[in-house]
């Protein structure tokens, strides 16, 4: 399958008074054309930082390095500011977590929907409006023509997120990054928006990086999953493999935290992962998950594991010395 995005050893660090905060510590990611990749992790694991780095939206003081950041054959890091603007918005776009504040209160929705395509594709205002109405309809916004003249404050949060989704699709991008697009919404609306994103992704064949902390969401929509912990990818696999055969103790812990209807008895204790995420300032010694891991051994304190193939397959990789050792034994 053709890769639309290929990232090698992505690092993001932010200077703070206490030293550099290394939010992303060498991430390898790839997204195939038309695929839904979910990035899962808890707050502060660097998943939003990764998406902002891919879009080039981090503040100037953030330092972004990578061995490679290929988007459809282009090296994103070596593009000029103008070329980067052209790619961002036209070929990759983003849906944000906060629908209530992500639209400019002073301009009509029509204006905000159309400005990107008018700039990037040099289409006329009427053509842009036609496409906006079509996409609003696709995104399930009632009375799409009327919406073009409305302002964001006249819409509910769920509708605003639908507008944001339509906006992200305006230029027919190859890749959409959705950063927790359902977190700020009611549960009932969440399900609708998830289904919508999945449907549109399949209809338009757009690749999507979907960032979430919710494994329930992952189970419903992902083709592939990358689990992040402390600025690193700790396990990546197809959605099916990850749920049926998780390898990393962190992934197993996350899966245990989800109550399963029928299996988790009412009143029984719901699992959690003890401890907190380590500070991301400065170097980490050994495995980042060691202090919270239930199966760690002495070696984990000082040896940083690398991302290894599980059972010799490139499609399932895990960053854990113990899991790799047992996978090796099984293979032999």
């Amino acid at each position: 399958m053709k890769r639309i995005l290929d990232v090698k050893n992505l690092q993001v660090s932010l200077p703070t008074p206490n030293g550099d905060l290394r939010a992303v510590r060498g991430i390898d990611l790839h997204v195939n054309k038309g695929e839904m990749l979910c990035i899962v992790g808890e707050s502060g694991c660097g998943k939003s930082m990764t998406s902002m780095a891919l879009m080039g939206l981090l503040p100037k003081r953030a330092e972004v390095t990578a061995d490679a950041m290929q988007f459809d054959g282009m090296d994103l890091l070596s593009l000029s500011k103008k070329e980067r603007n052209q790619v961002r918005g036209m070929r990759m776009s983003m849906i944000f977590q906060e629908p209530m504040t992500s639209l400019n209160p002073s301009y009509t929705l029509g204006n905000q929907l159309c400005e990107g395509i008018i700039k990037h594709k040099k289409v006329s205002k009427d053509e842009a409006k036609k496409r906006a109405v079509y996409l609003l309809e696709c995104a399930g916004v009632p009375y799409p023509e009327k919406r073009l003249d409305q302002y964001p404050h006249q819409l509910s949060g769920g509708l605003r997120q639908r507008v944001m989704i339509a906006m992200a699709l305006m230029c027919e991008p190859d890749l959409i990054i959705a950063d927790e697009p359902t977190t700020a919404l009611d549960v009932t609306i969440q399900a609708q928006i998830l289904r919508l994103i999945r449907e549109l992704q399949q209809e338009f064949g757009t690749a999507v990086i979907f960032i979430t902390h919710d494994l329930g969401v992952v189970a419903r929509i992902a083709d592939r999953v990358a689990v992040m912990y402390a600025g690193q990818v700790v396990e990546t696999a197809s959605a099916q493999d990850l749920f049926s055969d998780p390898q990393h103790p962190y992934t197993k812990g996350l899966l245990n935290c989800i109550p399963v209807p029928g299996k988790t008895l009412p009143g029984s204790h719901l699992e959690s992962i003890p401890g907190v995420v380590p500070s991301l300032i400065g170097e980490l010694k050994g495995c980042a998950f060691e202090n919270r891991c239930s199966v760690s051994i002495g070696e984990c304190c000082y040896r940083s594991p690398s991302l290894e193939n599980h059972l010799g397959s490139e499609d399932h990789q895990v960053r854990c010395s113990i899991a790799t050792a047992s996978s090796f034994r099984e293979a032999v």
Partner: peptide
């Protein structure tokens, strides 16, 4: 610093716009 400026940037608009 607001979210809608981030949205505007994500659309690849010029800095002046």
């Amino acid at each position: 610093n607001s979210d809608y400026i981030r949205t505007a940037r994500s659309k690849g608009l010029n800095e002046s716009s």
